[in-house]
């Protein structure tokens, strides 16, 4: 290889540094999986064992049979899926309108939305809680889903992508007599497919991983999402390292798989959302 013959030592050192960085990065995840498969109290040994002496699934079994984990998995899946589907529809409509439909005050309105992204979500949480309490949505799935149904970031991302749709294409459809909603459905949505996939991953992962809001709005443990359930479980089982690790594996695994399968969309979307302002 030409690359390797050019500066062999430097090339080697660079790769060694990268491999060291990868090992340091992946070690906590590897250790999490490894400890989750150890028999009870094996992790409480010194020096800490790297691999289980006799791998066992007993902690996973315990999580499902006695600690209601299936319900939490279902809650998380249901909430994250609902938010993803609904927000994809609403954000793509708004994002398309900001990119391609001309109306008075469009750019000013868009700038206002962008600027308000510096407001931390926590500022809204206290009145939001009171409001949802009045609406009877505290301690319901809807209480988690409804505030996530539209997002400024989602609108922004779709708009950035939709800007590249040629106006001539839309105008041709209009001249053919297509209605605006039909243009959106049959022309814009298919063209925006890559960014829709990206936004779907972002939204699903963001909702799946979210902690503070579900922690506030869900008071009944039957409705807990995985992160809330995990934090709660830690209170009672802090001594059971193996059990907590198994719970962590089950919480993290779905999003890691989703990322590994769809990483192309994820990383491209991240760059689009940040650089092309």
């Amino acid at each position: 290889m030409a690359v390797f013959s050019e500066k062999p030592i430097k090339t080697l050192l660079l790769h060694l540094a990268l491999i060291a960085a990868v090992i340091a990065t992946l070690f906590p995840l590897f250790w999490m999986v490894s400890v989750s498969l150890m028999s009870s109290a094996e992790a409480n040994r010194f020096p800490p064992p790297l691999l289980p002496a006799a791998p066992t699934l007993e902690h996973y079994r315990m999580l499902f049979s006695r600690l209601n984990l299936a319900a939490y998995l279902l809650n998380s899946t249901l909430i994250a899926t609902s938010v993803t589907v609904l927000s994809l529809l609403l954000n793509s409509m708004a994002g398309y309108a900001f990119a391609k439909l001309r109306f008075k005050g469009r750019d000013r309105l868009f700038r206002l939305l962008l600027a308000s992204m510096v407001i931390p979500a926590q500022v809204a949480m206290l009145p939001l809680f009171l409001m949802l309490k009045e609406m009877g949505l505290v301690n319901t799935y809807s209480g988690v889903i409804v505030p996530g149904m539209a997002s400024i970031f989602g609108i922004f991302l779709i708009r950035q992508y939709a800007l590249s749709i040629p106006d001539s294409l839309l105008d041709a459809a209009r001249i053919d007599g297509a209605g605006e909603f039909r243009i959106y459905r049959t022309l814009v949505l298919p063209l925006c497919k890559p960014i829709l996939v990206t936004l779907a991953i972002f939204t699903f992962m963001g909702t799946w991983n979210d902690f503070m809001w579900p922690l506030i709005i869900l008071t009944d443990s039957d409705l807990y999402t995985l992160p809330v359930a995990l934090a709660n479980l830690l209170g009672e089982h802090v001594q059971d390292a193996e059990l907590m690790m198994a719970g962590s594996v089950l919480t993290v695994l779905p999003v890691i798989i989703l990322f590994l399968v769809l990483q192309k969309y994820y990383i491209e979307g991240l760059v689009l959302g940040s650089v092309k302002e």
Binding site: M32, N209, F211, M244, S248, V249, T251
Partner: peptide
């Protein structure tokens, strides 16, 4: 992409 709560536990 990992869940912060799970990672904090680890």
């Amino acid at each position: 992409v990992t869940t912060l709560v799970a990672i904090a536990v680890v």
